[in-house]
């Protein structure tokens, strides 16, 4: 099972890499083609990635297929890992990095299906790939659970819910980056600002309740294991900071003067806070020090 998990993981990494390659090539090709047609004096509307009007290979669509394939491989990897360890695949940085990448891919796939904007993948896939490459640097050995983590139900639910939240925040971040890169008048080939704004918002609308639930479940667990529902543990506090930033974003969008670029900047800040919360246990110690990287 352990070996199966490893193989699926590697296959997943390769699929994400190939998918990203497809997207980048499709995006660049679409731009080049648009420039050519523009030179030829023929105006075109803002095409999306993978819409190859001259027939031939639709690289974008292959990219999407590869995303699904990657999701399938990573799902298999996590399932095999769960069978091998006997607990949810969320107990150390190796497992959680794969889960985070999985969440990012799953949420990206969901939003791509819904909005048909593969441009999001240009940012979302590198995030997933970076997480997976990071996981590759961590030894995959299975260490038994320390007493504080021996709560299978809460371990699985608390972290699974966090994975969904983090995944949606990756998508919101991707849309916000495109929003800011695109600028007011717009770069060709990127979705409209209204659409990007809406994708960000919809992603946070899913992510925020899940982040809230993550924190609440964390409080429930803290009460059982550490004797209090809240102890200002650095990771707790960081998650609260993340929650406050996304909460601010949800409010900011309906305040004049905060819409648009400022709201998008809040999403960058929010994702920075998400990553800070996520990687935090590596440097700020505290009760959440389960990274599995400092076991002597």
């Amino acid at each position: 099972m352990f070996k199966m998990s490893e193989y699926s993981f590697i296959a997943g990494v390769i699929s994400v890499g190939l998918a990203l390659g497809c997207y980048v090539i499709a995006f660049v090709a679409a731009r080049v083609m648009r420039q050519r047609t523009a030179l030829a004096g023929v105006g075109t509307g803002g095409g999306t990635i993978g819409v190859d009007r001259r027939g031939g290979v639709n690289l974008g669509a292959y990219g999407t297929l590869l995303v699904y394939l990657a999701l399938a491989f990573l799902t298999a990897s996590l399932v095999f890992r769960t069978i091998a360890t006997g607990h949810g695949p969320f107990a150390n940085m190796y497992e959680f990095s794969i889960a985070f990448a999985w969440g990012t891919l799953a949420m990206y796939a969901y939003f791509e299906r819904r909005y048909h904007e593969r441009a999001l993948g240009l940012v979302a896939l590198p995030i997933a790939l970076a997480l997976l490459l990071y996981a590759m640097t961590i030894p995959a050995t299975i260490d038994p659970l320390v007493p504080a983590l021996q709560n299978n139900l809460l371990l699985s639910v608390h972290v699974a819910v966090a994975v969904v939240a983090y995944g949606t925040f990756s998508v919101a971040f991707a849309a916000a980056i495109l929003y800011l890169v695109r600028g007011e008048d717009g770069r060709r080939g990127l979705p409209s600002r209204e659409l990007l704004d809406e994708i960000s918002y919809k992603a946070v609308v899913i992510g925020f309740p899940f982040l809230t639930l993550t924190i609440v479940l964390g409080a429930v667990w803290a009460e059982v294991a550490w004797g209090t529902y809240w102890s200002w543990d650095p990771k707790e506090t960081a998650s609260l900071v993340t929650w406050l930033i996304y909460g601010s974003y949800l409010h900011a969008r309906v305040v004049r003067g905060w819409r648009g670029e400022r709201a998008a900047s809040l999403l960058l800040l929010g994702f920075a806070a998400t990553l800070f919360t996520y990687f935090g246990n590596l440097f700020f110690g505290g009760l959440h020090s389960y990274s599995g990287l400092n076991n002597q």
């Binding site: 506090t237 960081a238 406050l244 909460g247 305040v255």
Partner: peptide, 17 residues
């Protein structure tokens, strides 16, 4: 509300650092 939330976030960040 926004200013207060972001202010609280800043304090929280100091608290983790």
């Amino acid at each position: 509300g926004l200013a207060l939330m972001l202010g609280l976030a800043v304090l929280g960040l100091i608290g983790t650092l």
